[in-house]
């Protein structure tokens, strides 16, 4: 069983996101340890990109900070490789098509394997374009994780049928970022996914509070939180790991409550 499948085995998963290299790669490494220790079941690491079109202001600014501080794809790979010696939860990269394409998708996947990356999420590669990376992902055993959105409707089954790793269900319209309220009818989206696949479904975009996490995890297999964590990193900088750990702990507990 893959590390990703294991993260969802007999439990609801709490998935934590952090932008690599924000504010430093050293902090990213410490955050990986802190988040795992605090109970994160899977960690998404954002490879910073100059123009992250699916991100709201919080993660956009994190990308800018990381690039300004000198984070590159190669340096981030090195950091992940080092952290992998200790971290056991699945690690997934989130980045944009061009970061992988320009690096060379073959070389990129090779390094993913070397560094213990389990999957990739590429928000600007929809189902119709997945062939750009799916072949090479498959030959290196990296899950290309697909997204479904509130507008997907009749596309949901088509996307879910071929899903690898987990299905990333986008909770709301728009870009990433904390939201007061999630109004999409998530349970009917999850239901459609479940009709065609056993691949777990996790919900992301807009989740910040334990109440939201519990609610989302209750109707799916897990909750993904990005902007709320990145906000803590922006606020506390190099001191962020202990604040993030505390937050992840409370979120993990909330997700656990949804298991009942």
């Amino acid at each position: 069983m893959s590390r990703i499948a294991k993260a969802f085995e007999n439990k609801k998963a709490f998935i934590a996101f952090v932008t690599g290299g924000d504010p430093t790669l050293d902090t990213t490494e410490k955050l990986l340890y802190a988040m795992e220790d605090a109970g994160a079941d899977l960690i998404e690491i954002g490879i910073p990109f100059s123009d992250p079109i699916a991100e709201g202001p919080v993660i956009q600014e994190a990308n800018e900070r990381a690039l300004a501080a000198g984070c590159t794809t190669d340096r981030l790979f090195d950091t992940v490789k080092k952290a992998r010696e200790r971290v056991t939860v699945p690690l997934v990269y989130l980045t944009y098509a061009n970061a992988i394409f320009k690096y060379g998708s073959e070389k990129f996947m090779q390094r993913c394997v070397e560094c213990g990356i389990d999957g990739i999420i590429v928000p600007d590669v929809p189902y119709e374009e997945k062939e750009e990376f799916s072949g090479v992902c498959e030959s290196y055993g990296i899950d290309l994780i697909t997204m479904v959105a509130p507008t997907s409707n009749d596309r949901i089954k088509m996307i879910a049928k071929d899903a690898k790793g987990f299905v990333y269900c986008v909770s709301s319209m728009g870009v990433t970022g904390v939201r007061q309220e999630i109004t999409t009818d998530i349970s009917s989206i999850v239901k459609l996914v479940k009709e065609v696949t056993d691949t777990p479904v996790a919900i992301g975009f807009g989740i910040a509070t334990p109440e939201q996490a519990e609610k989302m995890a209750a109707v799916s297999d897990g909750a993904i939180v990005g902007s709320a964590i990145v906000k803590l990193v922006a606020k506390h900088g190099k001191e962020a790991p202990r604040f993030v750990a505390e937050y992840v702990k409370s979120m993990k507990e909330a997700v656990k409550r949804a298991e009942k």
Binding site: D124, V125, P126, T146, S152, R155
Partner: peptide, 18 residues
């Protein structure tokens, strides 16, 4: 769809596909 040789395509978030 929408290729000019290898150029073009539809590299947008799922939210925009429909």
């Amino acid at each position: 769809a929408g290729r000019f040789g290898e150029f073009g395509g539809q590299y947008v978030p799922e939210t925009l596909m429909n």
